[in-house]
């Protein structure tokens, strides 16, 4: 997908109308993630039910790709166990770094799969990874 279509069809909606933006009062875990060179800055909160992520939220500011990517990530990880979430984060990293390209393998990323073309935009890789990197740091 070319850049303009990526914005139009995927990124804008999550950026302008994020489903998971806000702040929880009683999170079990929280962590700030920043891209110092771009100024992307997010604050990620997780709530657990046993080993399962029962809810997640983020706040922050940054470019549309960084913000949309976190929102999509949260869509995906609610309901997953810690290990499953970590595995998905690893898969997303591999996709953005261009290491995994097989569509079937990437299917579980759901909508976040559409960010795969970011791997051809080196300057934006960090933006797409911010949320996923922060998640990995929290759970890893």
């Amino acid at each position: 997908m070319d850049l303009k279509n990526l914005y139009r069809e995927i990124v804008n909606d999550h950026n302008l109308n994020p489903q998971h933006k806000g702040e929880m009062t009683d999170p079990d875990m929280e962590l700030r993630g920043v891209n110092p060179s771009c100024g992307d800055d997010i604050f990620l909160q997780l709530k657990f039910d046993g080993d399962k992520i029962s809810d997640a939220m983020f706040k922050g500011s940054g470019c549309a790709i960084s913000q949309a990517s976190v929102d999509m990530m949260i869509d995906n990880i609610i309901g997953l166990s810690k290990d499953e979430a970590l595995k998905q984060s690893a898969l997303f990293h591999s996709m953005i770094n261009g290491e995994v390209t097989d569509e079937e393998e990437l299917e579980e990323l759901d909508e976040a799969y559409y960010l795969k073309d970011v791997c051809h935009m080196p300057a934006r890789v960090k933006c797409a990874l911010l949320g996923w990197r922060t998640l990995k740091e929290m759970l890893g």
């Binding site: 070319d2 850049l3 303009k4 914005y7 060179s37 100024g39 470019c63 933006c127």
Partner: peptide, 29 residues
């Protein structure tokens, strides 16, 4: 409403090269 990095990426699509970020002047930002 548009982050400078998104702006620079979109303009790049039309062959326009501009800079976006803190321009090595964070205290000024």
């Amino acid at each position: 409403g548009v982050h400078p990095h998104d702006l620079a990426s979109v303009l790049n699509d039309d062959g326009i090269c501009i800079r976006a970020g803190h321009h090595c002047a964070q205290p000024l930002m």
